[in-house]
Structure formats: structure tokens, C-alpha cells
């Protein structure tokens, strides 16, 4: 276990996974008009649990939990990107990323105060 894991707990890995999910959702939005493109997403909960339990890197955990999106209404050209779904997920993920950042900031603040002896 790295020093970073001791200090930041689950939030370090969570931030990495959030960042990977951000890229994946951006890929889906980028391919909204590409015929035959299949939208993908990470099962965040399971991926984070796997990374915590097995100690594997978040990259491996994300790859193992990479799933295809099931469209609500399939389109004729085989594209499974539904912009309303992707935009909601993207916004949600961005907010969650910022939440994780504030957890990390809080932890850093605590440690800094402890080091200064305030």
C-alpha cells in the first residue's frame, strides 16, 4: 500500500476512476453522430470496490468493469449514444469529481494544520 493510500483513503482511487469515466463519457458525446458507435461506461461502484479489494490499479479495475450502454430507444444506424443520458451522466460525474476534490482538500488541510501544530 502506497503512502498516498494511507493519507487519502479511498478518495485517491475515486478521483482516478472519476477522471477515467470523464474521458469515456466525453468519447460517447464525441461520437454522438457516428453510425454504429456503441456507447460505453464504467460501473463505478464495482470498479472502485474491485480496486480497493484486490489492490489492482484503477486502470485495470476500470477496464474490467467497462460495460456497453443499453439504449432506451435503439436508432436505425446502430449508434447507441443517447445525448440526454450521456449529458446527465457527464454532469453528475463532474459534480462527483469536484466532491472528491473537496474531500481531498479537506484531508490535505487537516494534515497541514497538524504539521504546523496550530
Amino acid at each position: 500500500m502506497a503512502l498516498g493510500d494511507d493519507i487519502f483513503g479511498i478518495h485517491g482511487k475515486a478521483l482516478e476512476l472519476r477522471s477515467q469515466r470523464l474521458g469515456l463519457l466525453a468519447s460517447n458525446i464525441a461520437n454522438a453522430a457516428t453510425p454504429g458507435f456503441k456507447a460505453r461506461d464504467i460501473d463505478f461502484k464495482t470498479a472502485l470496490a474491485d480496486a480497493e479489494r484486490t489492490g489492482e490499479t484503477t486502470g485495470t479495475a476500470a477496464e474490467n468493469n467497462l460495460l456497453y450502454r443499453v439504449p432506451l430507444q435503439p436508432s436505425l444506424d446502430g449508434n447507441t449514444v443517447e445525448l440526454n443520458t450521456e449529458q446527465t451522466q457527464f454532469a453528475e460525474n463532474a459534480v462527483q469529481y469536484q466532491t472528491t476534490l473537496s474531500f481531498l482538500n479537506g484531508r490535505i488541510g487537516t494534515l497541514t494544520r497538524a504539521l504546523r501544530g496550530e
Binding site: Q20, G23, L24, A26, S27, A30, N31, A33, T34, P35, G36, F37, A62, E63, L66
Partner: peptide, 15 residues
């Protein structure tokens, strides 16, 4: 004609 461009290293895809 749009074509998806995959990146195996990062798992991302652009167009």
C-alpha cells in the same frame, strides 16, 4: 463520413 478512432492505451474514442 464519420469514423470512430479508438485509442487502446486509454480506452478513449474520438471521431
Amino acid at each position: 463520413v464519420f469514423r470512430t478512432s479508438y485509442d487502446n492505451a486509454t480506452g478513449l474514442a474520438t471521431v
